[in-house]
Simulated assay, not measured.
Amino acid sequence: MADSALAQDDRLRRPAGIRSLWLGGTKVSFVPDGAVQGRPRGWLPDTTDETWAAHPEYLDASGYLVASVGGLLVEHGDRALLIDAGFGPESLPADPDTPNGALYGGAFLDSLAELGRTPEEIEAVAFSHLHPDHTGWARHPAPGGDRPAFAHADHLVPEPEWAARDLPEAGGGLSEEIVAALAPRVRTVTDGQEIFPGVRVRVTAGHTAGHAEYVITGGGTRLIAFGDSLHSPIQVDHPEWSCVYDHDPVRSADHRRRLVAELAESGTIGFGVHFADVVFGRVRQVGDGPAWQPLDA
């Protein structure tokens, strides 16, 4: 195996560090918070033992899928927006009764500082959806204080996601704790709405009732921050495989097929917040190789 392929395999089984790229005058950066392990057949129930025997490059030394946890910082001039807010300063051990291995956060504010931003400079936090690994620092008190780090900022939530906050979903409804923490600052947003220069909301229900992607354009390039429409790069090759946490597996699979085709279009980049250390990439089908081609940014 070539050294480049070995290096890419290593990236598929470790969480991402800070990575940035420019879209014209807009800078986008992954803000690491932590990581979560997923039992491969637990997370992707339509896979088999044979699937993972054929693709060990996606699994860490313990046999888990590795998913990064964090958010996306979008900067345009002096302005700054966050898309998602990590898991927060807590950790959970592996639980044999769930599809998860260990889950931890805590690095988000340090990562933001390394990128040259303070929480007070963030004008809004836009959420792809309201699961705990996307809302963490919007609900946990910041270290040394009694208010969340982004309590000053608008919390932009897709309208159908907020409307469904009390409805049961896969794994149970949204916790009262999350709703209570976010509610004072929530401003709902709608499909197609521009929330920041060059950033538009795209509601793509399936993972949750009101899950949204964010389409960022600049410099002739389009970046689709697709949230939890995809959880692992292997789904780019198999969009029919839904995650166990998808609220509507059929609908999410239908959307993934369209999304993968869209990511293959010229001038289009994807951002997968859970995509190990290959969070930025393009879809390029080359022979029998993986279609997700990471960007070295």
Rank of each mutant, 00 (worst) to 15 (best):
E123R: 15
G198Q: 09
V215T: 00
A16H: 13
V199A: 00
G192E: 12
A149G: 03
E159I: 01
V244E: 12
T26G: 13
T217G: 10
V286L: 14
P96R: 12
G220K: 10
P294F: 08
T98D: 08
P233Q: 03
V279Y: 02
F127G: 00
P290L: 02
A276C: 12
A180G: 04
R200N: 04
D78G: 15
W137G: 10
E120V: 09
V66R: 08
L81E: 03
V186N: 02
V186T: 01
T47W: 05
E123K: 07
W43R: 08
D60E: 08
Y214E: 00
P141Q: 05
F196D: 14
S4W: 11
E123N: 10
A80E: 12
F127K: 00
A138V: 01
P89V: 06
A264V: 02
T190S: 15
F196L: 14
V31H: 02
L156Y: 00
L115A: 07
F127Y: 15
G116S: 11
T118P: 02
R222G: 02
D191F: 01
R200F: 00
G171K: 11
S29N: 06
A180M: 02
G34T: 06
Q37E: 11
R185E: 04
D49L: 15
T268P: 04
P56S: 07
G42R: 02
L82H: 09
Y58K: 11
Q235F: 11
L130M: 12
R165W: 12
V157H: 07
P197Y: 09
F280P: 11
D10V: 01
V283L: 01
G210D: 13
F271P: 03
S242V: 04
R19M: 06
P239W: 15
I83F: 00
W137A: 09
H211Q: 10
A253E: 11
G219P: 06
T221V: 14
L295K: 08
P143Q: 09
M1A: 14
A94I: 02
E169A: 14
A149Y: 04
R187Q: 15
R165K: 14
D110G: 13
A5E: 14
G198W: 07
S62Q: 15
F150S: 03
E161D: 09
A107P: 02
W241S: 07
V273M: 07
A291P: 09
T98H: 05
P40L: 03
P197M: 08
H247F: 13
G25S: 11
D84E: 01
E50Y: 03
T208H: 07
A124F: 00
A151C: 05
L44K: 03
R257V: 13
G144V: 08
R257K: 13
